[in-house]
């Protein structure tokens, strides 16, 4: 019982720190890389909690579709904010 608790604690802490740093970032291309990293950490948490259907439904969305949409929008508008 020790291993699931330790892995979930470490992954949750890292994802909360990254979520705050995404908000303060001025360069929006680096912010999308942070979002992809948070997605991989969430996949790890779902897997440790023994839910393989949720992992299979979450993986294409968070690693292929979400960065693609943000990069398309950034191409048509500007990259640095303010």
């Amino acid at each position: 019982m020790l291993i699931p608790i330790v892995v979930v604690l470490v992954a949750s802490t890292l994802s909360i720190i990254l979520a705050y740093l995404t908000m303060v970032e001025k360069d929006l291309l680096i912010a999308t890389i942070y979002i992809a990293f948070i997605g991989v950490l969430y996949t790890l948490i779902y897997y440790i909690l023994m839910a393989p259907d949720v992992v299979l439904a979450y993986m294409p969305v968070s690693s292929i579709l979400l960065p693609l949409m943000i990069v398309i929008v950034l191409k048509k508008t500007k990259r640095f904010e303010e």
Binding site: L29, I33, A36, T43, Y47, P52, V55, L56, M59, P60, S63, I64, P67, L68, V71, L74, K75
Partner: peptide
Amino acid sequence: FPMIFIALWAYVLDLYVSKY
């Protein structure tokens, strides 16, 4: 079973950044 797909799609973010 999800091990197969995450090993296949690990390189996708490189493509998007270089295409941008």
